[in-house]
Nucleic acid binder design. Sequence first.
DNA 1: TTCGTTTATCGTCGATTAACGATGATAAAT
DNA 2: ATTTATCATCGTTAATCGACGATAAACGAA
Lengths: 111, 111
Amino acid sequence: MAFHKREQFTAAEQEIAVIAKALGHPARVAILQLLAQRQSCVCGELVMELPISQSTVSQHLKELKAAGLVQGEVDGPRVCYCIDRAGWDRARQLLGNLLAELPLPAAGCAC
Amino acid sequence: MAFHKREQFTAAEQEIAVIAKALGHPARVAILQLLAQRQSCVCGELVMELPISQSTVSQHLKELKAAGLVQGEVDGPRVCYCIDRAGWDRARQLLGNLLAELPLPAAGCAC
DNA sequence: TTCGTTTATCGTCGATTAACGATGATAAAT
DNA sequence: ATTTATCATCGTTAATCGACGATAAACGAA
């Protein structure tokens, strides 16, 4: 069906999914790494470092902002982007908790 | 354009993106949590716990397998799914490293 | 062999995504 | 008042996703 059933899952599951989805494209991973390395970046610098067009970078930044992972400050004609530290911490907490669940060797099967 | 440019990013960026994308849907997060809790599950049990149809669960399991996060063992007519521990560890390592990059308060801007 | 159970796959649909170029908006600089 | 630089947004195209029902395949049991 066309209707997404996301709303039938728990808030935590949805929050994790939103963050993970934002990390689910190599361009966005690359953008986050650049931002983390340099602490901040104007959009133009990102475009120069990436193999995609300015409008596409802008789109990806928009999605990262929507997921709460990135902030943008207007600074004259340019925009300075940085990691959103609150969102970043939240991501670390949620994904960390999920992946910390240590699956023991399976019980009934040979896995 | 229609051409995806994923291949123009580094292998690490793509690997992170593949894993994150697999985590980017609440149903798949829920499935992984169920598997981690119980160590293993037949598909039918998952279907009963989830608000989506059997075919959709099967699809999600296929994607989780493709991302290396889940394994399936055929056991007679049923299939026993478990967390793929190698993939799980890899995910923890890659996402952990990414999120461990501690962005310091930004330099040039007010973020 | 045939039946019931379980899972995978197929076909379909609407929605979303990724990407681009072109255009628009804003602010500094001339 | 123009120009220039920078970034966002719009419109478009094609691919992918999410979901379902229906069907097929695999297996154990009768």
